[in-house]
């Protein structure tokens, strides 16, 4: 893992940036959310992929690419969470100022 971070830090930073932007937008976005059963399905697929990667079932370059995808998801999700949290803070403060004014 340390090797991955050292070798791919720029790509990981990029994924974090995308996540941060997506999280910022998601708070005020009017698009439809993912339905409940689909969430569970995606979670199951994600778990299966993680298990596959950990068990090294996919050989060679394909295996590396799977690991790369999963590892990029980590900073993406962290970025989304931080982005959404920051945007929520900003939105709440502006709403409070508007109601006070």
């Amino acid at each position: 893992m340390a090797y991955f971070v050292a070798f791919h830090w720029a790509w990981l930073a990029g994924a974090f940036g995308i996540g941060l932007a997506m999280g910022w937008i998601a708070v005020v976005h009017r698009a439809p959310g993912v339905s409940g059963w689909l969430t569970w399905l995606l979670a199951a697929v994600a778990a299966a992929l993680v298990a596959t990667a950990v068990a090294c079932w996919v050989p060679g370059r394909a295996g590396y690419w799977l690991e790369l995808l999963l590892i990029l998801f980590v900073p993406y999700l962290v970025g989304c969470a931080i982005g959404s949290w920051l945007r929520a803070l900003v939105v709440m403060r502006s709403m409070r100022q508007r109601s006070a004014g």
Binding site: A15, G19, A21, M22, V27, H29, A31, C80, S84
Partner: peptide
């Protein structure tokens, strides 16, 4: 909010 994070996966896939 996480239910609305999925559109970011598209640029993420491109990045990947």
């Amino acid at each position: 909010w996480s239910g609305k994070w999925w559109p970011g996966v598209i640029p993420l896939i491109v990045l990947w």
